[in-house]
């Protein structure tokens, strides 16, 4: 698969939500409260890209299309990009850079606190999304760091559900999707643990082995 055929169009596609809001603001098609529409829309797209990023690995695993994995970094960086814009609209249009008020808001409003924590956790992931950082950290530590994306997914959905006034139907849909994506990881881990406990890795070693469970000898001392 030639990624040069996929990456540029995908990059453009990832920018269309932003283009939609920029155009809508100019053309006055965002309704009575355009600022709220932009703020919420960018937040929704940050969450969408986060979930799309988390879908790459299962999709690659079950489809067998290994090249999908090479799109993951770009999609993850777009999640960060939209999250940064979402935070930016809050700081500017909602608070007008009134830093004492912002500090108070972050400390006092749980949904803002959770949103800011999610963003803060995204920053190191975005900063280490390059070959240099992977080399520097080493694959294993890099992977450990990037596992925090699961926590970020949960926090982002919590941020959304604590923001809505009464109708939880949309946050619940997101929660269900995150539940499936994270549930898959747990399932894989359980399967891997079983495989290792069964001694399968001793029978036919395949690639690099990271033991995550150690089988006790059947009877160590009489």
């Amino acid at each position: 698969m030639n990624l040069l055929l996929i990456k540029p169009p995908l990059f453009i596609a990832c920018l269309t939500p932003l283009a939609w809001y920029v155009w809508g603001a100019q053309a006055d098609t965002l309704g009575a409260n355009p600022i709220e529409a932009v703020t919420r829309g960018l937040g929704t797209w940050a969450l969408n890209f986060l979930l799309i990023t988390l879908t790459v690995t299962p999709l690659r695993k079950y489809s067998g299309w290994a090249w999908l994995g090479r799109l993951r970094r770009m999609l993850g960086l777009f999640a960060f990009f939209y999250a940064a814009l979402h935070l930016g609209t809050y700081l500017w249009f909602d608070q007008f850079f009134d830093w004492p008020a912002i500090a108070k808001d972050i400390l006092k409003r749980p949904f803002i606190t959770v949103g800011v924590i999610s963003f803060a956790l995204l920053v190191p992931l975005a900063a280490t999304s390059n070959a240099f950082a992977i080399r520097k950290l080493g694959g294993r530590r890099w992977q450990e760091l990037h596992r925090s994306v699961y926590l970020i997914g949960l926090l982002a959905v919590l941020h959304y559900s604590w923001m809505v006034k009464a109708d939880l139907s949309k946050p619940l849909i997101y929660a269900a999707i995150v539940g499936v994506l994270l549930g898959l990881r747990i399932w894989w881990r359980v399967q891997e643990r079983k495989r290792q406990l069964a001694g399968a890795y001793l029978a036919k070693p395949r690639g690099r082995i990271i033991p995550i469970a150690v089988k006790k000898p059947a009877s160590s001392d009489g």
Partner: peptide, 19 residues
């Protein structure tokens, strides 16, 4: 008196940019 989840100190008048 704030709403437990957000401040009530300011508001956005529909059609206006600043609060």
């Amino acid at each position: 008196v704030d709403h437990p989840r957000w401040s009530q100190a300011t508001e956005r008048r529909i059609g206006e940019f600043s609060k």
